[in-house]
């Protein structure tokens, strides 16, 4: 008997890859795509594209005034491609370096100094303040939270004008108090005297930092209060059973448990400090002798007042890299591998 020729082997079938929008949760996937894609496109257009465009501009000797003189999209032609020349120029530390390079060096130094003064000062004020506010009677807490948060919702320009009056040499509150105390006319030029320094730091910069901190502390205080309230009471009770006092509780329980929040607050404060502009622009306009000229002021003047867009873009790229690197370092240093 002849064997049957009918193969019993299964017919090979091409495995169909499930589509992105297939399956039981197809409708949810479509919904997610429809809601997320517009936002991604929006972010790409308004954030990613400008970043890439800014980096591209930094490779050109670009000025909007010359944009019509030839080349593609205003680049090339009268706005020639110069590669990394702007970045190379930034490394010129000689006495003969052009003024814009010297101003960039000064701005970089001032920005770093500003940020590294603001962050620890902010943390050392806001954290204890938050602990204090958290410990007061619950009924009083909203009042104090509002009290410390109010400067945040005040326009920065208004804050700067107000602090400018406080520091005014002849009409200012600060010199008025000093005059009243000393019994003779005091007219210290807090914001305009380049000789005035404290521990080697220009007093004008410290004055600007004071105004900045006054406006900014409410934000971190609120973050810390929220974090403090989320610490489980059981952990505090356990510590109390172990006999810790208030200070030990703060150092050995509260601070370690707040580490992720401290990281978040430090990173946000640092980024915000690197971006400071309005308060300085109004209070000192970068003076005296560029002692308060930070990178954003430098970028603003070069880009919009003196139309050196290529150079300003290169400075912006440096600022971007600076913020990125410091944020990564902070994240690494303050990283925790647990949660409560």
């Amino acid at each position: 008997m002849a064997e049957s020729t009918i193969s019993t082997q299964p017919v090979p079938q091409v495995a169909r890859k499930p589509g992105i929008f297939s399956g039981r949760d197809r409708a949810i996937k479509i919904f997610l795509a429809a809601t997320v894609i517009p936002m991604v496109l929006y972010m790409a257009f308004w954030s990613l594209f400008p970043i890439l465009w800014g980096f591209t501009l930094s490779l050109f000797e670009y000025s909007a005034r010359r944009a019509g003189a030839g080349g593609f999209l205003g680049m090339g032609g009268a706005n020639p491609y110069i590669g990394l020349q702007h970045y190379v120029n930034m490394l010129d530390f000689s006495e003969e370096a052009p003024k814009i390079v010297k101003q960039f060096h000064q701005s970089l130094k001032t920005t770093v100094l500003f940020a590294f003064l603001v962050v620890p000062l902010n943390m050392s004020i806001t954290l204890p303040l938050a602990v204090m506010l958290d410990s007061i009677h619950r009924r009083l807490q909203p009042f104090f939270r509002t009290f410390f948060f109010l400067p945040i919702v005040t326009a920065s320009v208004g804050v700067a004008i107000m602090w400018g009056f406080i520091f005014h040499p002849q009409l200012g509150l600060l010199n008025g108090i000093l005059t009243a105390i000393s019994g003779k006319m005091v007219a210290i030029q807090w914001l305009g005297d380049p000789h005035l320094k404290f521990l080697g730091i220009p007093v004008a910069l410290l004055a600007v930092i004071a105004a900045y901190l006054w406006q900014d502390i409410g934000y971190n205080t609120l973050i810390f209060i929220a974090a403090l309230q989320s610490i489980p009471q059981s952990l505090r009770d356990a510590a109390k059973v172990d006999g810790v006092n208030s200070l030990q509780m703060f150092w050995h329980v509260t601070i370690p448990l707040l580490r992720p929040t401290i990281l978040l607050a430090a990173v946000l404060t640092m980024i915000s400090a690197f971006q400071v502009f309005d308060i300085i622009q109004v209070m000192t306009n970068g003076g005296p002798q560029d002692q308060t000229r930070v990178l954003v002021i430098d970028i603003y003047y070069n880009a919009f007042r003196f139309q050196r867009m290529g150079w300003a873009s290169a400075v912006s790229v440096v600022l971007f890299l600076l913020v990125l690197v410091i944020s990564l370092i902070q994240t690494r240093l303050l990283r925790t591998e647990w949660e409560y």
Binding site: P169, G192, P288
Partner: peptide, 9 residues
């Protein structure tokens, strides 16, 4: 010129 300039007065 310390007290009278573009920034104050």
């Amino acid at each position: 010129p310390l007290l009278f300039n573009d920034e104050s007065n």
